[in-house]
């Protein structure tokens, strides 16, 4: 028996909007730790890792570890039917091939339930090794989203270079080139507007903008994004989900042949 009650149901709506275009089908894993997902896109270039900790739910009952295969497009369709202020409860019985989403309006005057078919998904669970990153950039998520969108109108790839001076996002395309430098500024009034760079050595990596733009669909989940970069390692683009956990995107770099 599984029963997860999330008072801030909009979080789950936002999570699905953030990942449904990257991954078609995925297993949601439910354990005492929380509700999690790890899935790669079909070309094995990007991976999304989601964790919503059990403590973040108002009610969290998961009698035994359960893996539920869901089509994320269909799940997003169902969650779109929940109001932004609704409380969302996920329910599944042991051995059932369906999951039920229950939506309650804040005033309890409208209660809906949507039952979705589960699917069997063969997915490989990857071990993500702990890594020491050469550079960690923390910046406003809206700024990062704007940069990725702007650069993708010029080129297909972005070179992210971190030095003591700041973080540089560069692209080139048929019409020309673009460079955007964000300097460290931790003296702003609001912490969510700061750009903070921790660097042990300079790093420069090239990534496909198509994926970066897809990751920025998680912007509504957090005002801050963290980019963790090391030479020859996938970048980690992390959006923390307040009080609950995180959504992390891993993207393999482009490599000179």
């Amino acid at each position: 028996m599984l029963e997860l009650r999330l008072v801030q149901g909009s979080l789950l709506k936002k999570v699905l909007e953030a990942i449904k275009d990257l991954v078609n089908d995925a297993n949601f894993d439910c354990s005492a730790t929380g509700f999690s997902l790890q899935a790669m896109d079909s070309s094995h270039v990007a991976l999304v890792a989601l964790l919503l900790r059990s403590e973040g739910f108002e009610h969290y009952r998961c009698d035994r570890n359960l893996s539920m295969g869901m089509n994320l497009g269909n799940m997003a369709k169902m969650l779109k039917c929940a109001g932004n202020d609704d409380i969302i409860t996920l329910k599944a019985d042991d051995g059932s091939d369906t999951v039920t989403f229950m939506f309650e309006s804040p005033t309890q005057d409208k209660i809906s339930d949507f039952e979705m078919k589960l699917m069997d998904i063969d997915s490989e669970h990857l071990g993500i090794p702990e890594a020491e990153y050469h550079a960690i950039v923390r910046m406003p998520s809206s700024e990062f989203g704007r940069i990725c969108k702007d650069l993708s109108s010029i080129g297909d790839t972005v070179v992210i270079s971190v030095t003591k001076e700041g973080v540089k996002f560069s692209t080139r395309g048929d019409i020309g080139t673009a460079n955007i430098v964000c300097r460290q500024n931790n003296t702003v009034d609001k912490p969510e507007e700061a750009t903070i760079i921790e660097m042990t050595e300079p790093v420069s990596l090239t990534f496909a903008l198509r994926y970066m733009n897809s990751f920025t669909k998680a912007t509504p989940l957090s005002s801050i994004v963290t980019l963790s970069l090391s030479s020859d390692l996938p970048v980690v683009v992390e959006y923390k989900i307040a009080e609950m956990g995180y959504i992390r995107f891993y993207l393999a770099p482009k490599i000179e042949e």
Partner: peptide, 14 residues
Amino acid sequence: PPKQGTLNKFFAGN
């Protein structure tokens, strides 16, 4: 142009 790598060589399956 640089070639797109995949994640398989970074993350071990288990």
